[in-house]
Design a binder for these strands. Structure first.
Lengths: 161, 161
DNA sequence: CGATTAATAGATTTAAATATCTTTTATTGT
DNA sequence: ACAATAAAAGATATTTAAATCTATTAATCG
């Protein structure tokens, strides 16, 4: 059980956009800054755009900008935009013999899913942004030497295994 | 974000074994009873066996039996046996510039993983077993007409949103 | 307008998870 | 001892998710 790549990428992008909200950023520049596959990111940004979390502007000087107040934007919303939390609403075995009531097992598993939803809902993007006395999100990452942040260890994006 | 197939299967198998603990069951019979691919189940049972949750006995009259008290066996233990909950312990970007401290984003995501662990840990297999006034787990499922189950107490705790 | 930029859409490829199959080893009953 | 049973181990195949690529549309600037 692990956080999917897609969710990780989506959150990195949203956090980056939130922390650099002064201007719009192309999917390519976001990908470079946050060290993730550019073309996959553009797919993710599409989903985020559909969900109204970011807005994409085409053409020269275009790019993506955050379309929400980070303080009112929960992680859950980002997760649901790219990979919705699946509640268990009907018996996976397809047994119909007790109508809409789930059996103990699946009722319990759905309760776990509710807890997972809550866990995601409990945090906002705003809480993760750069603040004094906190470790900066995605810190060390720079776009084309714009900001010379702390000497980055070159690295393998290697999330997953 | 959804419960993986593997986890679902593992839990079905453990619940079934707990609810039919009077004898051992072959992986094939468990698969038939709980409606899942038999050969994949045998792989899952191997993992559960390694984790000490079930014990496998070879040969005639062999099969699998539960090796634990269902009331002391959490869902988390079953999940961890087949697909461990992955905590985030180092920066996925591989940035080393702030040592072992995760940035706000990954610190938060790890907090979510901790909550997910807790959600799984909060339930035991025992709680899901057949009991009066509760919907029987995997009910309706029969092995070769051995038991004509169902006629289950319809409940409807009316909860859930 | 025409050239350039960059998002949007969706087809294709690659990699990982899921599922199946084959072989080997342990156990039991006759 | 031998035949039958069933787990254990692991190789192979299939399916799904992850990642990449190609084309199209919208916007901006000279």
């Amino acid at each position: 059980m692990q956080m999917s790549n897609t969710v990780e990428y989506a959150l990195r992008a949203v956090v980056w956009l939130s922390d650099h909200a002064d201007q719009s950023h192309t999917s390519h520049s976001i990908a470079e800054a946050t060290r993730m596959p550019s073309s996959y990111l553009s797919k993710i940004l599409k989903s985020l755009s559909h969900a109204g979390i970011v807005t994409g502007q085409r053409g020269v000087n275009g790019g993506y900008t955050l379309n929400r107040d980070p303080n009112g934007l929960s992680i859950l919303e980002v997760v649901n935009a790219v990979e919705p939390v699946q509640r268990i609403r009907a018996c996976p075995l397809g047994l119909e013999n007790h109508g809409k009531n789930l059996c103990n097992l699946h009722r319990t598993l759905d309760d776990v899913m509710i807890d997972i939803e809550k866990a995601f809902a409990n945090h906002t993007i705003g809480q993760m942004l750069t603040k004094p006395n906190r470790v900066k999100p995605l810190c060390g990452v720079t776009v084309k030497g714009k900001k010379a942040l702390d000497a980055v260890a070159p690295q393998s994006t290697g999330i997953r295994r």
